[in-house]
Amino acid sequence: MASYTIQEINDVLKGELIGNTTQKIEGPEQLQSAECNHITFIGSSKYIKHWADSKACAAIINDNLIIEPDNTRALIKVKNADLAMAKILELFNPPAPVFDTDIHPTAVIHETSTIGKGCKIGANCYVGKDVELGDGVILYPNVCVFDETIIGNNTTIWSGTVIRERCIIGSHCIFHTNVSIGADGFGYRPSDDGRGLVKIPQIGNVIIGHYVEIGANSCVDRAKFSSTIVGDGCKIDNLVQIAHNSIMGRSCIMAGHSGLAGSVTLGDGVIIGGSASIKDHTTIHSGATVGAGSGVVGDVAAGKTVLGYPAQDARDMLKQWVVMRKLAKK
Rank of each mutant, 00 (worst) to 15 (best):
S294N: 09
N37R: 13
I39Q: 11
I42R: 07
S54H: 07
L75V: 04
A314P: 00
V179S: 03
T156N: 02
V198C: 07
Q30A: 12
P95S: 11
G43P: 03
S113V: 02
S33P: 00
T265D: 03
I88R: 11
T161W: 02
I61K: 04
T155F: 01
V212Y: 07
Y211E: 13
L89C: 14
D232M: 07
G295W: 00
A328M: 13
K46P: 05
I151C: 01
N37L: 00
T283R: 15
I9G: 06
N64A: 00
K117C: 01
G43T: 05
K55I: 00
V198K: 11
M324E: 08
K87W: 09
K14S: 10
L17V: 03
D135E: 13
G19N: 04
Y140I: 01
A301S: 15
K224M: 12
T149H: 02
G303S: 13
N178L: 04
K224T: 15
G231M: 09
D135W: 00
I150P: 01
V322L: 13
S258D: 07
L260D: 06
A302D: 10
W321D: 09
P69F: 09
D100Y: 02
N238K: 11
A59W: 06
F146R: 10
D232S: 05
A255Q: 03
P105C: 02
G295I: 05
L133R: 00
K77R: 14
C234Q: 04
I6T: 06
C173E: 07
C173N: 13
I109F: 09
I272M: 13
T101K: 14
N80R: 06
Y4M: 06
F186T: 05
K79A: 12
G118N: 10
G136C: 02
D53L: 07
G262E: 10
I271H: 11
D299Y: 02
H38V: 00
I9N: 08
T283V: 15
G267E: 12
C167M: 03
G215Q: 06
V230D: 06
I163W: 11
Q32D: 12
G134H: 01
A58V: 04
L266H: 10
N64S: 11
E111K: 14
K77D: 02
D63N: 15
V323R: 14
T161H: 03
